[in-house]
């Protein structure tokens, strides 16, 4: 086995995996706090990429600032989605909520196709084509940025959940919504903030991954599927679980595609989930209710 190629595939897998983690973190937060399986999550990823593109090309703002604007705008959209759809339905059956999120996903992706056009677009980043040689491994600056920015964002989320007032309120709500409400926590506000955080993270993922590939209005489907796999494998509601599961999925896909079969790359990922879930039905890092 060629060590250089092996190391390169591991590096490829870690970068892809970190993007999965960023998508999955928001999804797992929404489930942990709101108990919602949100199928529209991938669409916020798509919106993040598109808003970065449009802010960059139409307003001529540089890439990093455009990415930040996209995250903030999409976070606001997340608050609106929660207010209009998920908050009113919070007492309904889980299938009803699930279908409403499926409807929202269809609405955003088809609306996106109408607004943005069906043609693929490229999010221009100054880092996209700059190749870095790290030892024997070759990565573009953009891919290093995906990894690094995700690490910073995750540390931020961790500190926020651990030490900030809102973070503590979110954790309390996740553990026991009724108890949290009794202690005077404004549940509605917590739901809104959780959605804003989750959608902002999804948008950030879209803005970061955008320049490494092409964007088109249906990329949300891909994002939400990867996100779900990671969330379920890591354990619903577990941020730590999402981190490990995401990186694991990325590396296993990369090695599976590299050394077993490219055609079966996705199937290898799914086979891993099946094994994990049959071994630990609640995922790698799940023990009880709450955010970890």
């Amino acid at each position: 086995m060629d060590v250089t190629v092996f190391a390169q595939q591991i590096a490829n897998g870690l970068v892809n995996g970190m993007a999965y983690v960023l998508i999955a973190t928001g999804l797992t937060l929404v489930f942990g706090v709101l108990r919602i399986v949100n199928f529209a999550h991938g669409e916020f990823y798509m919106l993040g990429a598109y808003i970065t593109y449009f802010v960059g090309t139409l307003l001529g703002i540089d890439y990093l600032a455009a990415a930040a604007i996209a995250a903030v705008v999409v976070a606001a959209l997340g608050i609106a989605a929660n207010k209009l759809i998920f908050w009113p339905l919070r007492r309904d059956h889980e299938f009803t909520i699930l279908l409403s999120s499926l409807g929202l996903a269809l609405l955003i992706s088809n609306g996106g196709e109408l607004l943005f056009g069906a043609d693929p677009k490229y999010v221009d980043s100054p880092f996209a084509d700059e190749v870095l040689d790290i030892g024997a491994i070759t990565l573009t600056q953009q891919r290093v940025l995906v990894f690094a920015a995700a690490v910073v964002a995750l540390i931020g989320v961790y500190l926020f959940l651990r030490y900030s007032r809102f973070g503590k309120m979110m954790r309390a709500t996740a553990q026991n919504p009724d108890g949290a409400a009794l202690t005077g926590i404004n549940i509605k506000l917590v739901h809104g903030y959780t959605f804003a955080l989750a959608c902002g993270l999804a948008a950030l993922a879209g803005a970061l991954v955008g320049p490494t590939v092409m964007i088109f209005p249906t990329i949300g489907n891909w994002a939400v599927l990867k996100g779900f796999i990671v969330v379920i494998m890591g354990g619903l509601g577990s941020v730590t679980g999402a981190l490990f599961a995401g990186l694991l999925l990325g590396v296993i896909e990369s090695l599976g595609g590299g050394y077993i079969s490219l055609g079966f790359m996705e199937a290898i990922g799914y086979a891993m989930i099946i094994v994990v879930l049959l071994w630990r039905p609640n995922g790698l890092f799940s023990t009880a209710r709450g955010l970890r």
Partner: peptide, 16 residues
Amino acid sequence: MVIFAALLTGTVVFLP
């Protein structure tokens, strides 16, 4: 498809 998705979401919200 946009109208379809809007009707779908609306129906779910108002007719669970």
